Computed example of a mutant assay.
Amino acid sequence: MNETAQLNLALMEELQAFDPYEAGEGFYETEMADVIYAVHQQEKALKLAAQIRSIYEHSFDQPMPGGEPIELAEKLLEIKRNSSCSL
């Protein structure tokens, strides 16, 4: 498996636990794909958090509960940085 695929799997594992609308695990496949794409494009946690919020709010057509997902963005970027070290 190549490095990008490994990174994407690691990001997906982290995203599995993110359930802002309490829809249940495995419900957010489309949003997870969009967030993974955003992680590859973004380096700043605040900007990534805003993108995550936008992705989920667009899908659910309502505000995302809980404020900015900054902790999630930081975790995702940390996974990306750790993966980049081995590339």
Rank of each mutant, 00 (worst) to 15 (best):
S59Q: 09
V39H: 01
S59H: 08
L48D: 00
I55S: 01
D19K: 06
Q42W: 00
K44M: 07
R53H: 05
I52K: 00
D19R: 11
K80A: 10
E13C: 08
Q51F: 10
S83P: 05
R81S: 06
H58L: 13
I55C: 04
P63L: 04
A10V: 08
T4H: 12
Q6T: 12
L76A: 05
M32N: 14
A73V: 07
L7N: 01
F27E: 08
D34S: 14
P69I: 00
S84I: 05
K75H: 13
E14P: 08
M1P: 10
A23G: 13
N82C: 13
C85P: 00
E68W: 07
K75P: 06
K80S: 07
Y56T: 00
I70N: 00
Y37R: 15
I36F: 01
L77D: 04
Q42I: 12
I55W: 02
A17P: 02
N8E: 12
L7F: 05
A38W: 05
E43Q: 14
M64A: 02
C85E: 04
E25S: 10
L72N: 00
L46R: 12
A33K: 14
G66R: 03
A50S: 10
S86G: 06
L76W: 04
G24D: 11
E29M: 11
A50T: 04
P65W: 01
G66C: 03
S86W: 05
S84K: 13
Y28T: 02
E78K: 15
A38D: 09
S83V: 02
Y21Q: 03
A10C: 12
L77P: 03
E68Q: 11
E78T: 15
L48W: 02
M12C: 07
Y28N: 01
A17M: 09
Y21P: 01
S54L: 14
L76E: 02
H58D: 12
E43G: 12
S54F: 10
A5V: 09
M12N: 15
A5G: 07
L7H: 01
A45D: 09
A10K: 13
S83Y: 05
